[in-house]
Design a protein around this nucleic acid. Structure first.
Length: 463
RNA sequence: GCGGCUGUAGCUCAGUGGUAGAGCACUCGGUUGUGGUCCGAGUUGUCGUGGGUUCGAUCCCCAUCAGCCGCCCCA
């Protein structure tokens, strides 16, 4: 080593977030909360490897996804044995593989949740990462999956999001639609470039009706097609009113009955019926919490019916923080059985980072400790450690200060780490224990066997 | 992948063609067993990287990399 030591400037890679302990603590609380709600509906947990074979990830046509592939640094020039490995970009495709592979050992309907990191090689931006967490729930069944689950998904998500720490001041809205409606409509109208149409409709809110109109015109749609597509896509409604709006639309536009194939009409009518049923089962949720929004179609091509998106009502441009839908045949590439499913995914990192940047989190506590045990001097070390053990057995998190330094220094340490209580064991034999509440500054005598934080102090310390 | 902006201490940022500063943070101190405030002292930089112009560049030019924002796409 030379005298001038080389220092790499430490920095994290953009798009790969990491948090300080006080933020990580909130993140852990979020995971705990989400897990609790998911499990309360009977979902089990699984975890799949970060890596899948590239062919598995590509089996469902997601080729344009930016996928990170895995490669050894030491590999030989012509060695491509690792080239088939890649980091998964979502949890739905691995789930399909998992279900197909363990088909005989699973009980259907298979209800699982999964909270893992996923990777996408996109350009990082606000709310967009290259490594991030998703929290998914999915239900997969054999042959047919009851529509009831399509309604259960948003209900669960609403419960999760509503109670997350820091979400108190946020207005979010789950938007539900059914792809069969727009697709059936396009087919009825004889529109062939359906993918392009759905892509434009998906951006309807963002680009506005004017631009959507122009873009559709450019695709070669005629006036009648245009008008109908825009009209139906513009339908937004509460759960209780959607049925009436759809019926009214159908009654006024008999074009659907007149043109198109029977199959197209069936698709359209099926979508309408499904959406009505799903929305009907969501009427118990608060006003505006969940709406039907026919402009939601979603880009992912494997969705076949119900689709979901979730936005901040006051900032829909931030992007969806929770999306999903129904897929009839995701596992079909891996097994010769019909395994329809419906699922939804919380964009954990996107949601979390927004609230973090808004300062919505309590970031005062930089450790899990409830109590800092003062070490008065080396002679009292054993007694202090014993007191700490007693309190730990009673369920408190206790950190014993590491050195018999000035009390001022030990206090300052507790203050900076946001530890709510400082415990003073006897400085000399025969004296009393004392506890100080850092929030109020109050200090009282205490017995480690039966001390409890006073309620108001506990609230203050927790808040 | 395409377009725009930015790159100076751990952080937020000043600054000048003649080899750099502030605030915050951090460390220590303001004596005996008590934090937050205040006061004092101190530590910290290949001025993103490589090349060019120049007697001389952190400042000008070119390239490159990285970051931010928008597009595409999406959680």
């Amino acid at each position: 080593m030379s005298k001038e030591k080389k220092i790499y400037k430490p920095k994290s890679v953009s798009g790969f977030p990491e948090w300080l302990p006080e933020v990580r603590r909130v993140e852990q609380q979020w995971f705990d909360h989400i897990r609790r709600v998911f499990e309360s509906y009977g979902f089990c947990s699984i975890e799949t490897p970060s890596i899948e074979e590239l062919d598995v990830l590509r089996a469902k046509g997601e080729v344009d996804k930016e996928i990170y592939v895995l490669e050894r640094l030491h590999k030989e020039e012509d060695d491509d044995s690792d080239a088939r490995l890649a980091l998964h970009f979502d949890q739905t495709v691995p789930l399909a593989r998992y279900v197909a592979q363990h088909f005989n050992d699973l009980i259907f309907p298979f209800k699982r949740y999964q909270m893992q990191r996923v990777w996408r090689g996109e350009r990082p931006q606000a709310g967009r990462f290259r490594e991030f967490y998703q929290c998914d729930i999915d239900v997969i069944n054999v042959d047919a999956l009851p529509l009831h689950f399509d309604a259960e998904m948003p209900a669960i998500i609403w419960e999760v999001l509503n109670d997350l720490p820091g979400m108190e001041g946020e207005n979010i809205q789950l938007r539900v639609s059914n792809r069969k409606i727009l697709i059936g409509m396009c087919e009825c109208l004889g529109i062939t470039n359906i993918v392009e149409v759905t892509r434009i409709i998906d951006k309807l809110e963002k680009i506005g009706e004017q631009d959507a109109y122009a873009d559709l015109l450019e695709l070669g749609l005629n006036d009648e097609q245009l008008a109908l597509i825009i009209e139906i896509s513009s339908i937004k409604s509460s759960p209780s009113e959607i049925s009436g709006l759809l019926r009214d639309f159908i009654a006024r536009n008999d074009v659907i009955a007149r043109s198109g194939s029977d199959e197209a009409i069936q698709t359209f009518n099926g979508g309408v019926a499904e959406l009505e049923t799903v929305m009907d089962q969501l009427k118990h949720l608060p006003e505006d919490a969940v709406i039907a929004d026919l402009s939601i179609v979603r880009g992912l091509d494997y969705y076949t019916g119900t689709v979901y998106e979730t936005v901040f009502t006051d900032d829909p441009g931030y992007g969806s923080i929770c999306s999903g839908g129904r897929y009839d045949d995701l596992a079909g590439s891996y097994i010769n059985k019909a395994l329809p499913g419906v699922g939804i995914s919380i964009g954990f990192s996107r949601l979390f980072d927004r609230l973090r940047q808004k300062g919505a989190f309590d970031v005062t506590r930089k450790s899990a400790a409830d109590i800092l045990m003062v070490l008065p001097n080396e002679e009292q070390r054993a007694a202090a450690a014993e007191t700490a053990r007693t309190l730990r057995e009673r369920g408190y998190n206790v950190e014993l200060y590491h050195a018999a330094q000035k009390i001022k220094k030990q206090m300052s340490y507790a203050e900076r780490k946001g530890i709510p209580y400082v415990w003073f064991p006897p400085f000399e034999a025969g004296q009393d224990h004392e506890v100080k509440c850092m929030e109020t500054g109050g200090q009282t005598k205490a017995d480690p066997q039966n001390w409890e934080p006073r309620k108001e102090e506990r609230d203050a310390a927790v808040a």
